[in-house]
Nucleic acid binder design. Structure first.
Lengths: 176, 176
DNA sequence: GATCTAAGTCAACAAGTGTTGACCTTCACA
DNA sequence: TGTGAAGGTCAACACTTGTTGACTTAGATC
């Protein structure tokens, strides 16, 4: 039973992998369907449209959880942990990559930017009341995450390294 | 005379404006030609192909000039100056925006990433010998520039403000 | 003025796009 | 066994894409 839910989930997973790495308009729906082992028409059936499928992938991204955090120091620790604990080569690519790949897209760019502010910047502002500082801080974080997980720039060490952690912590502390 | 050069320049300018904000594959060549007030076929004639035109826009970006810089302090000052002196609403969008909009593109992504390392990260490494630190530093810069010039995120003050400059300087200093 | 070349125009092409509607299959339930 | 719906398949649609080749125009050179 509930076979439909399985194909829905398969489509969603493949859509994340493709949309978030290559960008919304660079991925034909036929390719998503093929990767999911499913017919194209089912995308329209289950998600209404290609855009509907994309929206579903973004809706699936959890917001930064700051409920247990009090000070800026807590925030930095949490973020360094987050960066070093994230599954490095899992099947689901980083949502940060989604920003890089889609923020410029005329069709879904606005949606992506909205999700970024809602789920990342706004929570940070809860801990860092200075709006300008919080914006700068989260922007720097975005850059680092993007460079590491989407750009694959040379020179960025694995985030598990202690030396890297220390450098990251130092950079973040300087921003607050 | 040299009317051909004029249309070439017009095409290049419009291509920058469109490619760098919306991304390579989101911009049809017909739209570029229309914006330049020129026939589509001239893109193929003068630049060989759509991709050739894109490459021309990237080749036009100057590298970060670090010849007169010695210390990390010099570098920070130069960058803060660069950020606050850049024409904010000029016709040419920031090359940083080009990275955001195109780094994920399967067709031109590699080219864009190459330009980023060549023209931005490598010069920074000349001043900041620690490769890992330099990478983190330039990644943070990328994020800030992207957030300001391409994402238009809320909360990022105009870079001309003295308070913003001070915050930026502090963040950068923390990274080095 | 004739001639040659650079510059520009136009229509068409082949390929790929998202979406739809008609059809088939499977299976629980009466 | 018959019926209904849910899940899935297939071919076709209207549209947009980058590129090309044949054609026309403008300007300099002799």
């Amino acid at each position: 039973m509930a076979k439909g839910e399985d194909t829905k989930a398969a489509l969603l997973l493949r859509a994340k992998q493709l949309f978030w790495t290559r960008g919304y308009s660079n991925v034909p729906v036929r390719e998503i369907a093929k990767a999911a082992g499913v017919d194209v028409a089912l995308i329209s059936r289950y998600f209404g449209s290609k855009r509907g499928l994309f929206e579903a992938t973004m809706a699936d991204v959890p917001a930064l959880d700051v409920r247990d955090l009090e000070t800026s120091e807590d925030l930095i620790t949490a973020i360094v942990d987050l960066f070093s604990s994230a599954p490095r080569n899992g099947p689901e690519p980083s949502p940060t990559a989604a920003i890089l790949a889609n923020a410029g897209d005329p069709e879904v760019g606005e949606l992506v930017r909205l999700h970024y502010t809602r789920k990342w910047q706004t929570p940070i502002e809860k801990i860092v009341p200075d709006r300008s500082k919080a914006a700068l801080f989260s922007a720097a974080l975005l850059g680092i995450s993007v460079a590491e997980k989407a750009l694959h720039l040379p020179g960025i060490a694995p985030a598990t390294s202690d030396a890297y952690k220390a450098q990251l912590r130092q950079l973040l502390a300087g921003a607050l």
